Amino acid sequence: MLESPAPQRPLVLGSTSRYRRELLTRLHLPFTVAAPAVDETPLPGETPRTLALRLALAKAQAVAALQPKAIVIGSDQVADLHGQSLGKPGNHERATAQLRQMRGQTVVFQTAVAVVAPGFSQVELAPVQVRFRDLSDAEIERYLRAEQPYDCAGSAKSEGLGITLLDAIDSDDPTALIGLPLIRTSRLLRAAGLVLP
């Protein structure tokens, strides 16, 4: 007689990002979403890499404190232009300024994911190097009017029309640039005791 598997702990995505929610559905696991109450202001002198790691873990810990029996995923992404953090632009003017700064440059998108569960807490970084084309002001304007990526770090959606702004993407975790590195997320979830399909 086969034993039925033990019930899994509830899985919670500690993020309000629709991009991360859509990515996590690819793993075919039931999960809920909770908004983490975390101040995302960089600390004085904090590097983009350190900021992404700190915020991913803080988001997972904040939600885990409210749902202590759950396995919680936290994630954060910071665009890193030569050590300078570029956040979500929020509006057209800031997005224009960001894309002008990044044209012809290689930007590292520091994408971190953390998993926190009872007796378990780990965070990993999945950096993605993105080389932007030497964009004209007209190309930047056309792109921003078409896609309005004002809620995206670095002002471009590689999964959409933003791919036309790029010369190259270098990553060992293909979904990291969209906001949740699923290879690392899967590894951390298995380490936390979750059985993946």
Rank of each mutant, 00 (worst) to 15 (best):
M1I: 13
D39L: 09
A56R: 03
V113I: 14
P30H: 02
D173K: 03
E159I: 00
I178F: 00
V123H: 01
K69M: 13
R184F: 09
S17H: 03
P42D: 04
A156E: 10
D76I: 08
P118Q: 10
G162T: 07
I73V: 11
P68S: 00
E3N: 14
I178L: 11
L135D: 08
D173I: 03
P197L: 00
Q129I: 01
K157D: 01
A146W: 07
A52D: 00
S15A: 08
G14N: 03
S17F: 07
R49P: 07
A34W: 11
A56V: 05
V72P: 08
A56L: 09
R142T: 15
G74T: 08
A79D: 00
Q84A: 15
V33A: 09
G74H: 03
G74Y: 06
G83P: 04
T111N: 13
T32N: 11
I73K: 02
S158Y: 05
D39E: 11
D167M: 09
V108A: 13
G162P: 07
I178E: 11
S4E: 15
R103M: 04
E159Q: 12
E147M: 10
D39Q: 05
N91L: 12
Q148M: 15
R100F: 11
Q101S: 14
K69E: 15
S15M: 08
A191M: 12
M1F: 14
L55M: 09
S15P: 09
K59S: 06
E124G: 09
H82A: 15
P7A: 13
A153V: 02
R54A: 05
L66N: 11
P42V: 02
Q110K: 06
L27F: 13
R184L: 14
Q67W: 12
Q101I: 04
Q148C: 15
Q105R: 14
S136I: 03
I140C: 01
A58V: 03
L182K: 01
S85V: 08
A37D: 15
I163R: 14
L165S: 03
I178T: 14
